[in-house]
Design a protein around this nucleic acid. Structure first.
Length: 504
RNA sequence: GUCCUCGUAGCUCAACGGAUAGAGCGUUGGCCUCCGGAGCCAAAGGUUAGAGGUUCGAAUCCUCUCGGGGACGCCA
């Protein structure tokens, strides 16, 4: 038993890239749909969950050796673009009139305000409403002026969420972006196909697909509406087109949607409709991965005292600031640049970890105190364990102690101390933690495991000196340190997208 | 009304059918002549909402009741 443990440790240590974890025998093509921010709306704390849970799922499948296709289904094609383009037009005209140096970027700097202003004008100004309707019609017809405004707004908005993705270490890139607009010219065909198959029927003027087993409040059949009575398409249509694209063009074996639980019914109907249409071949898996709502202290969906939400950007800035204050207090002598680097890793890590550590199905109460905590079961706790190991290894280097050399001369690996054994047993279970986390799409299994490892390490660190250990004990302890660092680093950076630092 | 989801320590949350249900925060008391105290050790704190059932074994699965949140025809 002990020799097996030792062998496994050494094998994991030898395999720097994968820590002894095999890839899947039969790689699949997995489409993961997540984040999906709305254009012209600033990302707030409510967007955190889809973005980072989805990212973790994508990273897990990646690591397991599957072909992962990320899809960022951004909301870039709603009717709200009429008023947004109209306002943009108005502002640019005003600018020309006043010859002020207001450039486009500044006009759209605060997307939230821009949106609110457009909404207000739309409701109150009849002339503006007319322009808005003309804009949306023009946009759908592909008129150059409106298209240009639309592109300007999308571009500016994209800049905003890309900044957030960068800060969060989210792997989404421009090539993963496939917004609603991409499917605009495929919607009519979706409806035509369903009609041709005799699945879509008219009801109260709208085109509907009636699916077995879905009933409304009055126990009447519940329709999946794919075309409104005014002829316009809606999100069911777009989602059908997107699903068809993912199965047909992207050749997905598995499609995973990461959205909040309120959309559960929609996805059940979406999947049922696609199957009915014959678009989903046998063996294809469609999964809706849900998550709970973020609540306020009053147990109601999260809002600030003034009724708004907390912007993701502000939360991250606050987190980095608080982390900076802690660094200043703990390690005032570090160079300013390094302190800033640490504050970023610690602050952002704390926020992401706080969300990941929850069971995704639970609603949970948002609290700054919890999101920004740096002690206990938090990302900084693991980063700290990692930094301590780096410190040991720096000192080992200074003393001319080389782990690889020490291990070479090793016949048996003694794990005499209970703290050593506990840590070793945990380390060799890394593959199980990953497998469980992936199978259920639950990042909290992984955070729980990493916390156990960091905690076992902290106990080991307190109980077992490494560099001053007896010659027969030192190699095993060095190995445990190094492997702990690798597991923490791999788990945090590769699977959760949380940075580690050598010093903090 | 139907369906989904949650209910676990004072608070916030874990527990992938399996050992005495675990952490963090908070409370109380310890630990720096020794590799980093963002740490370690210990104490107190639980009828897992309630009642039945399945199982060798249930916080977990099934049924019912109570409570929170959510969804249920032209928003996404």
């Amino acid at each position: 038993k002990d020799s097996f443990l030792a062998e496994r440790l050494v094998a994991m240590h030898r395999d720097a890239a994968r820590l002894g974890i095999d890839k899947a025998d039969a790689p699949k093509t997995v489409v993961v749909d997540y984040s999906g921010p709305n254009i012209a709306k600033e990302m707030h704390v409510g967007h955190l969950r889809s973005t980072i849970i989805g990212d973790c799922i994508a990273r897990l499948y990646d690591f397991a050796g599957h072909t992962v296709i990320r899809q960022n289904h951004i909301g870039d094609w709603g009717t709200q673009f009429g008023m947004l383009c109209a306002l943009y037009d108005k502002k640019l005209l005003d600018k020309d009139r006043h010859e002020e140096g207001l450039n486009r970027s500044e006009t759209l700097k605060d997307m939230e305000l821009f949106y609110q202003e457009a909404k207000k004008l739309y409701d109150e100004d009849a002339e503006f409403a007319i322009t808005s309707r003309a804009a949306i019609a023009g946009l759908h017809k592909g008129e150059a002026v409106w298209k240009r405004y639309w592109e300007g707004i999308v571009k500016e908005s994209r800049k905003h969420y890309n900044q957030i993705y960068d800060a969060l270490h989210v792997t989404l890139t421009a090539s993963d972006e496939r917004g609603e607009s991409f499917y605009a010219d495929k919607l009519a065909d979706v409806v035509a196909q369903l009609k041709a198959k005799g699945l879509a029927t008219e009801s109260d003027g709208a085109m509907c697909v009636f699916l077995d087993g879905f009933k409304n409040k009055d126990s009447q059949p519940l329709p999946f509406i794919i075309q409104k009575s005014d002829g316009a398409f809606l999100y069911a249509t777009t989602d059908l087109a997107a699903l068809r694209f993912r199965l047909g063009e992207l050749k997905a074996d598995t499609v995973i949607y990461v959205t909040d639980a309120r959309q559960a019914l929609h996805f059940q109907m979406l999947f049922a409709a696609a199957k009915m249409a014959g678009w989903v071949k046998d063996g294809i898996a469609l999964e809706h991965i849900t998550f709970g709502t973020m609540l306020g202290e009053d147990n109601k969906p999260f809002k600030t005292r003034t009724g708004g939400t907390v912007k993701l950007k502000d939360l991250l800035e606050e987190a980095i600031e608080r982390a900076a204050a802690v660094v200043e207090q703990k390690n005032p002598d570090l160079p300013a640049e390094q302190k800033a680097h640490i504050a970023k890793a610690v602050g952002v890590g704390a926020v992401k970890y706080a969300d990941y550590a929850n069971n995704r199905n639970s609603d949970y109460v948002f609290s700054f105190a919890k999101m920004l905590a740096m002690e206990g079961n938090t990302a900084p706790y693991m980063q700290y364990a990692y930094a301590r190991i780096q410190s040991i290894e720096r000192k080992a280097e200074e003393k001319g102690v080389r782990i690889t050399d020490e291990l070479k001369n090793l016949a048996v690996l003694p794990l005499a101390d209970a703290a050593e054994k506990d840590l070793a047993k945990l380390l060799v279970r890394y593959d199980q933690a990953i497998a469980a986390s992936m199978a259920e799409c639950r990042p909290n299994y992984l955070t729980g495991y990493l916390y156990d490892v960091a905690q076992a390490f902290s106990r080991f660190y307190t109980a077992c000196p490494v560099l001053t250990a007896a010659p027969q004990d030192r190699p095993a302890r060095l190995l445990l340190c190094d492997l702990t660092a690798r597991v923490i680093k791999h788990g945090l950076t590769e699977l959760l997208g949380i940075a580690v630092i050598d010093q903090m």
